[in-house]
Computed example of a mutant assay.
Amino acid sequence: MLVDKSEKIHTDSRTPKYMQVVNLILDDLDSGKLKIGDRIPSINETSFDFLLSRDTVEKAYNELRDRGIITSVRGKGFYVSSTNMANKLKVLLIFNKLSSYKKIIYYSIVETLGSQATVDLQIHHYNRTIFENLLERNLGHYNYYVLAPHFFDENNHPETCYDLIQQIPKDKLLIMDRDVKNHENEFPGVYQDFARDILEALESGITHLRKYSRLTLVFPRGDMYPVEIIDGFKRFCFFHNFNNLILDGIDDEQLYAGDSFIVLAETDLANIVKKSREQGLQLGKDIGIISYNETPLKEILAEGITTISTDFIEMGTTIANQILGEEDKIPLKSPFKMIIRKSL
């Protein structure tokens, strides 16, 4: 019998029980205790030996079958079909775009998965039809699908595409970067809460913001940013009595001493830095700048740009660990914070 001691399952481990079963079987393959053609215990037998529920063992066997390690023979049971430990997990990342911070998430996922998985990347460009076509071509070919569910309809209104997302088996789907509206607790993964995040981040830096007479959010409406950011910004200004303004862009705007800006697009960030130099306004004294999403460049640009941002490296690491079974597959809110630098 493969395993006959329930003590081999650690109830206090962060690794889910089904993955502990998977790893024990892989260990026996690696050591040579199991060979191609060997029968492994039935689901009921392993359930009894491990003192686990049948559902847990079935989930472990499905994982092994998806990897091509075991096969089921109707009426006879489960048999080892491969001892090739190079049978890696196949992961498909479906991003809305490939921005600088999406690249950080991508590389974090790839680095954390290491040699245990192969990773492919597709972009849906916020478009329902492209996403539908991606699903049609790729469903059934991967062990896990990681989706950034940012979608807009033909009128640039946010949509969930929930009917399409449901086509992905729930045990193979992880959401990333944002939740699915009205289904926030349904899908595991790591998400940002855009309205709450900007509200709480600005509150953490309120003493710096009080130096300025007006707070302006530069929100390019045609670039498909999360509209919840506007809601969080308005709430902050209302609750804390800030004179405020929302602009679509900064190209034609004159800067004035006492202005502070929250910018989403890096082109707007560059424009404000350039205009401030041309007008002789000192960052962090005459005007303030907060940029959305931390990147290495912002740490050194103009002697340091203040950012409000989630931790994209941690987001990718958590997603990868959920895939590997190192962390529970549950919905997790990504931490979000303000990093104070000279520009504020």
Rank of each mutant, 00 (worst) to 15 (best):
N155V: 04
Y191E: 01
D153F: 08
A257K: 14
L147H: 03
M1L: 11
E63A: 14
I330P: 01
N182S: 09
F238C: 08
L332K: 06
E303L: 07
P16I: 05
A60P: 09
S6T: 14
K211N: 15
N321P: 00
E314R: 06
N293C: 05
K181F: 07
G140F: 11
S115R: 15
S291E: 05
K35G: 08
A270Q: 12
S6G: 02
K170H: 09
Y126L: 08
L51M: 14
Y292T: 07
D4Q: 14
F219E: 04
F219N: 10
V57A: 12
D120C: 05
F236K: 01
L24T: 02
V3D: 05
K285Q: 15
K35Q: 15
Q20D: 12
N127D: 11
D4H: 13
G189Q: 07
R65A: 15
L64Q: 09
Q122S: 14
Y61Q: 14
V119A: 13
L113P: 11
S53H: 04
T46N: 15
F95I: 00
D248Q: 06
N241G: 01
S204E: 11
I69S: 03
I165S: 01
Y61N: 12
Y191H: 13
Y107N: 06
Q116Y: 01
L217C: 03
D197T: 07
K298M: 11
F151W: 09
I323P: 01
Y107F: 13
T310Q: 07
E200R: 13
G258Q: 13
K172N: 14
D248R: 01
L139W: 09
G316L: 01
Y106E: 10
I272N: 01
T71Y: 03
T310D: 03
Y101T: 11
A265K: 11
N138S: 06
I289M: 08
L269I: 06
F95C: 00
M176Y: 12
Q167C: 04
R67G: 04
M315E: 12
G284A: 04
G32V: 05
K275C: 07
K333E: 13
I308D: 00
H208Y: 15
N84W: 07
V227Y: 10
I130C: 09
N133H: 04
N244P: 02
L29S: 02
E303H: 13
L121S: 01
E327I: 02
S100N: 14
R277I: 10
Y292Q: 04
L264V: 07
I105G: 07
M176G: 07
R221W: 00
K102G: 00
N271V: 11
A148K: 12
I230W: 01
K76N: 08
C237V: 04
A320W: 01
N185K: 06
E7Q: 15
Y144M: 08
S100D: 10
R54P: 04
A117V: 04
F95Q: 00
I168F: 03
V22R: 13
E184V: 11
I36E: 15
I43Y: 02
Y256P: 04
A320C: 08
D259W: 04
K33T: 05
I206A: 12
L34W: 11
K102T: 12
H10C: 12
I123F: 01
T118L: 08
I262S: 10
A257L: 02
I250F: 03
F242S: 12
I109A: 06
I330S: 00
K102R: 14
N84C: 02
N241A: 11
L34Y: 07
V273K: 07
E278I: 11
I40A: 10
N185F: 05
L113A: 09
M224Y: 07
